[in-house]
Nucleic acid binder design. Sequence first.
DNA 1: GCAATTGATACTCCAAGAGTATCAATCAGG
DNA 2: CCTGATTGATACTCTTGGAGTATCAATTGC
Lengths: 305, 305
Amino acid sequence: MEIRRLRYFLAVAEELHFGRAAARLDIAQPPLSRQVALLESEIGAELFDRSRSQIRLTQAGSVLREHAQRLLEQLDEAIEQTRSIGSGRAGRLRVGFSDCASFGPLPELTHAYRTRFPDVDLVLTPYGATTLARALIRGEIDLAVSRQSLADEAFRVEHLCLEPLVAAMPCRFAGEGRQLASLSLLSDWPLIVYLNPGAGQENDPILALCRSEGFDPVQCIGAPDMRAALGLVAMGAGVTLVPSSAGAACLPQVVLRPYAGRNPQVALSVGVRRDNCAPQVRQFLELCRREARSEPARPAMALLA
Amino acid sequence: MEIRRLRYFLAVAEELHFGRAAARLDIAQPPLSRQVALLESEIGAELFDRSRSQIRLTQAGSVLREHAQRLLEQLDEAIEQTRSIGSGRAGRLRVGFSDCASFGPLPELTHAYRTRFPDVDLVLTPYGATTLARALIRGEIDLAVSRQSLADEAFRVEHLCLEPLVAAMPCRFAGEGRQLASLSLLSDWPLIVYLNPGAGQENDPILALCRSEGFDPVQCIGAPDMRAALGLVAMGAGVTLVPSSAGAACLPQVVLRPYAGRNPQVALSVGVRRDNCAPQVRQFLELCRREARSEPARPAMALLA
DNA sequence: GCAATTGATACTCCAAGAGTATCAATCAGG
DNA sequence: CCTGATTGATACTCTTGGAGTATCAATTGC
């Protein structure tokens, strides 16, 4: 059974005239007659009553016509839907993000993507820092957005943006100035670290930064994520460093202060499995790159305005 | 788009292995790869992720697989249904009958047909004597069963059975004997005629029979159908002649009496348009012929037993 | 690093579909 | 009742496209 025969049959069933049907199909009449006859012998049923000059559908032909019409419509629809998904206009995109990625450009990016691709089902799932990479490896998500490094052979990682770090400290610790003259001014308070909760605190990049600035904090407190770290700061437990965009989620008891000196420009990065070449992924990443170009990282001072 | 490509694609989607899929389809692997590639370029979407040694379905492929599976099932079902109707195992058969055809072999015939072809929707519609032939001409029914003659160039007519006529008279008119010595014994009572209500009474075959037996009834009363005629007999309005099988519908005030002499053996006939070669019609008529052979008309005396 | 597996490619061959010419049957009109 | 027109079927040829064989390239597992 070939679709062509159904199409030919349907044309004849609608025109009830081999000549007109052939013209509509843009073929000659004899092959049309032949194909319909082949269809009839294939099914084993007369589809047309040719006893008069005006042909008519038999019962069997009438039923087949309805089926054929429905089938061809469904086929077109299936192809169109498949094409949409293949082009990235439709389908599904699963983005996992670690908690501290909620701040920064991700909300705007997802909004832009949804606006550009309203028929894609964008599934956003928060993950803990340790489970995000695993979800990406297992294929539970297509994209992983995180501030942690997603270094893995199987991943391709792009930076969404680079943000300077700023000091987060309780209001009552904070001095007058808008900017800390040096990061070492924080050395008297406990340092709250949170970036790699899975790994040991000793490897934390914030702690490493402090050491490179020439001091060791009096104490090091681990927190599972940035939000928890800011909570600890609000409670006066210590100080920490956060990306400047974290200001959006800052608690009233906390002030953010840029500081002079070396600033490692913490990155928000997006990871994707190298073997994932889904158009939805590709287009999301392209959108990321465009946004990154058009909207450079806000200067650290902006959040104090 | 050709069905073959969908079948090939589905095989690969299920096996996730071109070699095994090709073996299942009983073709070589290269043409299978080619056809799948052609399907992909036709749709304009990658259907398989071939980046690893183990191929996988893409989103688009996964969606197309579901559609293809459903479509192919529906196609098979459509063909099977069409085939059933074309063979006469399923479909619809519209039988019209005039009232007086309810008596005689029609009930048993329809029952036998329904038993033999349970999937055919047998539509039985009663018609008045005048509307039956019109319905057949218009194609509103496939078969017309009637005791009237359905003579028309466009019809093919077969006799279902021949039945002797018997006299129907009110109990109080009836004499002692089980059989009338002669039809002319009825000459003193009004004759009720009903066979051709559309045509004039003068052409009624019952009246003609009486005349050929050598008498004119004292009066001639028209009735629209046999049931009405028997009602008139029950009310003592006169006498009539009915097919012997009418005993089944006889009222208690009426007795049926065979009579000696010429009996025109009224026929129950079935008419069909010559251009109607539907298998349901053909098989119904074949059933009629078989029944007619296996069950000859009951002798008139039987109904008195 | 090498052998094995697996899908893609190049090329040939054949079958099936499409075109041309023509026939047969039906129907309308004189 | 005959004739011409219409319409679908048939015979034959040609071309397109699908299938087979041989082979290559890439990936994977030992």
